[in-house]
Amino acid sequence: MNIFRLAGDMTHLMSVLVLLLKIHTIKSCAGKSYPCSLCFILLESSSGISLKTQELYALVFATRYLDIFTDFISVYNTIMKLIFLGSSFSIVWYIRRHKIVRRSYDKDQDTFRHFFLVLPCLLLALIINEKFTFKEVLWTFSLYLEAVAILPQLILLQRTRNIDNLTGQYVFLLGAYRALYILNWIYRYFTEPHYVHWITWISGLVQTLLYADFFYYYFSSLKNNVKLKLPA
């Protein structure tokens, strides 16, 4: 474990917590007897969260952590895997099933056909992988899928008029975690002999590059202290 990877995992964890906080806010808001102004805004405007991206992430974790009960690595590793699995599936459940949260989900805007991401990633994983075994192919699939899983969310943000802070922070933290992982891979390449994993590295690089324009608009909105807005 190195500082870059720990920082990456913590950033990833924070992105999940921000999303859970946002869902909690929507839930608690609608529970109020009086429609406070914030509640009114929350319930009227869409949450800006893409269910498609959340479903893709649930699939990423489900296919990445197949070995959670067979290969024990560390308590930390197992606990983090359980947190990511539990949170991603419960977020999908909330947006799909929860009577209040699903009202804030704008399915007319979240129209990205994520099937068009799943199939190519699966085919690519069948062709390019480190070992042609069931677990290895699914693990490679999860890497390719995670690289593109954010696309529905980014497209939804372009369509969402006013991106609220929590959603913007969620996407920022999600992009930052993989950027920190790239530093972790560089560090491990120089400190551990034979540590070479091109598939992981290239997927991680592509994933981070997809956030490039978001990072640009995110930082410029922070610098100019204006509302985050992605050009359509």
């Binding site: 995992d9 990445r64 070995d67 290969d71 690595i73 560390s74 590793n77 990511f84 992982y181 992981t200």
Partner: peptide
């Protein structure tokens, strides 16, 4: 069962 080291990451 020690897994290969590339799987020790999340």
């Amino acid at each position: 069962i020690p897994s290969d080291e590339s799987k020790d990451e999340l």
